[in-house]
Amino acid sequence: MTGSLAGKSAIIAAGAKNLGGLISTSLAAEGANVLVHYNSTSTEDEANRTVMAARGHGVQALKFQADLTVPSNVELLFETALDVFGSIDIAVNTVGKVLRKPIVETTEAEYDSMFDINAKAAYFFLKEAGKRLEDGGRIVTIVTSLLAAFTDGYSTYAGSKSPVEHFTRAAAKEFAARGISVNNVAPGPMDTPFFYPQETPDRAQFHASQAMGNRLTRIQDIAPLVQFLVTDGGWITGQTLFANGGYTTR
């Protein structure tokens, strides 16, 4: 197998569909073995298709189902990849949950769920990656461009993604001696099934109007950036890269 990632192995959390699915197959196309994580049984068919597409590039690929808000499941995720591949070089976390709701209407259960999925799972994913990755490894977490927005409705989404920037900076410093880079990618509102249930048609159109070309971010805009960070972009570390067509900036 040839390619910039030949001989490497990658874990892609939430790697079965949408952005995660494209990252899985993109890294496989460059020669990386891939473990495709998914959470829900409703996603199993898509996980199967992504695994088969990855194998079509001549690499090893397998699926793994687990709720990553449970730290022991994150440990098992990495242990499984090590057992199958022998080593892990790349860990990409695309896990996330979106909620648009006013603060005064948000329940404790919704708050807890958002922070478990967007912050807790990300923290323990970084922890296991720091323990298990080979020297010179690469870690990328998908966050959101709402981290740089001044808007309503997304308190628990942006709020639960914001700790990941602090986790990432700490991890970048702590893992630097082993040559492991740790970064975030912050897409703008993405043209995926996760976006539209949270917005009215008018608001969706407004979001699109704020970026170049009057369109939402596409998964094809983001996957190449992730691929760069895990290959030639390894000197970048501790950063959050906003990839949103000018939707917002700090």
Rank of each mutant, 00 (worst) to 15 (best):
G137L: 05
S145I: 05
E165N: 11
L216S: 11
D191N: 14
T141P: 00
V140L: 01
Q205F: 04
E174V: 12
S160F: 00
V185N: 01
H166R: 14
P189Q: 06
T144S: 14
I180N: 05
T151K: 11
D221R: 00
A204H: 05
A177R: 11
A204I: 03
G137S: 06
N183M: 04
R215Y: 00
F206G: 05
I142C: 09
Q205E: 07
Q220K: 08
P187A: 12
R203Y: 12
F195I: 14
P163S: 12
G188W: 03
I142N: 02
S162Y: 05
I180V: 15
G153A: 10
R178P: 02
Q205R: 14
T217P: 00
T217L: 01
S181L: 08
S209Y: 07
R215C: 02
A158N: 09
V140K: 07
P187N: 03
V185F: 04
A172F: 08
A186L: 06
R138S: 12
D202S: 13
A148R: 09
I142L: 13
T141N: 14
P189W: 03
R203S: 12
T151Q: 14
G159Y: 10
D221N: 02
D221E: 09
D135S: 13
T156I: 12
N214R: 07
I139H: 03
G136L: 07
M190E: 06
E199I: 13
G159E: 04
D202L: 09
R218F: 13
M190A: 07
T156V: 14
Q198W: 02
S145W: 08
F150V: 15
D135P: 04
P163C: 13
G159T: 08
V143G: 09
F167G: 05
A176P: 04
H207Q: 10
G188T: 01
I219Y: 00
A186Y: 00
P187D: 04
A170T: 14
R138M: 08
F194I: 13
R138Y: 11
Q205I: 00
V140R: 02
A170Y: 11
G159D: 03
R218A: 15
E165Q: 15
A149P: 01
T156N: 06
N183W: 03
Q210K: 14
Y196T: 15
N184R: 06
E165S: 15
D152M: 09
K161Y: 12
V140F: 00
H166D: 11
E199M: 14
D152Q: 10
Y154E: 09
T141I: 13
V185K: 01
I139W: 03
T192W: 01
A204V: 06
F167L: 13
R169G: 10
D202H: 09
D135L: 08
F150Q: 11
A186G: 10
N184M: 12
A176M: 06
F194S: 15
R203I: 12
V182G: 07
N184D: 09
H166I: 11
Y196M: 03
Q210H: 01
F167D: 06
V185Y: 00
R203M: 13
Q198T: 15
Q198I: 10
P193Q: 07
A158V: 11
R178H: 06
A170G: 14
G213D: 02
S160E: 14
A177K: 04
F175P: 00
N183Y: 09
S155L: 11
A172Y: 02
T217E: 01
A208D: 03
L146Q: 11
A211S: 14
G136E: 10
T168F: 09
T144K: 06
